[in-house]
Every structure is written in structure tokens, then in C-alpha cells.
């Protein structure tokens, strides 16, 4: 048994320490907003925050998380789905199939924590998530819009 702080709540989990956080979140905690895409940290669909920093949870083992870490998933990014990134995404109707978008939104929100007004070059360097529908044009526009909102 290990206690995690997820979306502000302390939760006990019972899983092998080698289990990636992605599967702890999805299968032990039953929170399915964080997606499985590749399992090798290539696509970013599984992006969550640990202490405000974006990490790819499919390769982040439970053993690397301590009780003092703040784990944030898409479900906890905002109380009412109104984080500036979520607002910008809604305004631009960014998602297509939407499967990559929780990870995309978490990656963008994590970047904005450190870089409140990123340039296009910084976006290119920081946001490496894959979206097969190809929403990048609106993702880029949405990042600039979210930066204005926050």
C-alpha cells in the first residue's frame, strides 16, 4: 500500500512498484482521462503533471512517486473544466477524435506553468505530442490564446 496525492486528494494504491503511473491511474484509481497511446513515451497521450511539470506517465514508475508529490491528471486540471487551456480549446473547437487531447492539454498547461507566453519556436521545442487527426494548427493557436487568458 502506498499513499499518493492525486488531484489534491490522498489516495491509497495497491500496485507493484514497477507499474507505470499511467496504469495505476487508469486501472487502480479508475480515472480514464489519461490515455494509453504507445507505452514508450513517444506520443504523449498519457501526459500528467507531477508538481506542475508535464511527465509521460506510461514510463513513470510508481516507485518514483512519493507521498509529497502532487500528481495532477486531466480530471484535476481545473474544477469546472475551465483552465485557460481548456477554455482556449473550447473556443477554437480544437479536438477532432479527441483521444490525444487530455495529454496535449496537460503538456500545454505544464509548459505554460514555466513559460507563460511561449514563442512559436518554444512551442515547437516543448510540445512533441502526436495527434494523428492533425489538430496542430488549432493547438498552436490555442496555446497563444490560452497564454492571453492566463
Amino acid at each position: 500500500m502506498k499513499t499518493l496525492k492525486v488531484n489534491g486528494k490522498r489516495i491509497k494504491v495497491d500496485a507493484d512498484e514497477g507499474t507505470p503511473l499511467l496504469w495505476v491511474i487508469r486501472e487502480q484509481l479508475g480515472m480514464t482521462g489519461t490515455k494509453f497511446g504507445c507505452g514508450i513515451a513517444q506520443c504523449g497521450a498519457c501526459t500528467i503533471h507531477i508538481d506542475g511539470k508535464a511527465v509521460r506517465s506510461c514510463v513513470y514508475p510508481l516507485s518514483a512517486v512519493t507521498e509529497s508529490n502532487d500528481v495532477t491528471t486531466i480530471e484535476g486540471l481545473s474544477e469546472n473544466g475551465d483552465h485557460p487551456v481548456q477554455q482556449a480549446w473550447a473556443e477554437l473547437d480544437t479536438p477532432q477524435c479527441g483521444y490525444c487531447q487530455p495529454g496535449m492539454i496537460m503538456a500545454v498547461a505544464g509548459m505554460l506553468n514555466d513559460m507563460p507566453n511561449p514563442s512559436d519556436e518554444q512551442i515547437d521545442a516543448q510540445i512533441t505530442n502526436i495527434c494523428r487527426c492533425g489538430t496542430f494548427q488549432r493547438v498552436r493557436e490555442g496555446i497563444h490564446l490560452a497564454a492571453k487568458k492566463s
Binding site: M31, T32, G33, T34, K35, T73, I74, E75, L77, G81, Q86, W89, A90, D93, T94, P95, G98, Y99, Q101, P102, I105
Partner: peptide, 12 residues
């Protein structure tokens, strides 16, 4: 169908 795609609520 956008709203639930932004919050992780949509069940795929």
C-alpha cells in the same frame, strides 16, 4: 462532442 474531450470525461 467537444466538452467531454477537454476534461477526460469522454469514455472511449
Amino acid at each position: 462532442d467537444t466538452a467531454d474531450k477537454l476534461t477526460g470525461k469522454l469514455v472511449y
